[in-house]
């Protein structure tokens, strides 16, 4: 089982890039994230969010593991 600290580490984007993560709060903490891809800008990451899907939470992380954008697809 991955620890919470490990989970946070793997959410970090590669240097100079941004990682888009889907958060499914129906899963238990530490197993609720789905990596949707790595992008060169925040805009590219946000544009990648599918518009037609139901309300869910999306997070964009930078290369130091900080959240630089969060929201849903509404």
């Amino acid at each position: 089982m991955t620890t919470w600290a490990e989970t946070f580490k793997r959410l970090k984007a590669p240097k100079g890039q941004f990682r888009l993560v889907l958060l499914d709060r129906w899963e238990i903490p530490g197993e609720a994230d789905t990596n949707l891809g790595v992008f060169s800008s925040i805009k590219d990451a946000v544009d990648f969010i599918p518009k037609e899907q139901i309300h869910l939470e999306y997070l964009v992380y930078n290369d130091s593991g900080q959240i630089v954008w969060q929201g849903d697809n509404k």
């Binding site: 958060l23 903490p29 997070l59």
Partner: peptide
């Protein structure tokens, strides 16, 4: 409780020591 745990895991950096205590 689960919501709080999700916020801690995905929105804050957690040290291994703090994780066990939490």
């Amino acid at each position: 409780l689960a919501e709080w745990a999700h916020n801690r895991v995905y929105k804050h950096n957690i040290s291994v020591k703090n994780e066990d205590i939490m």
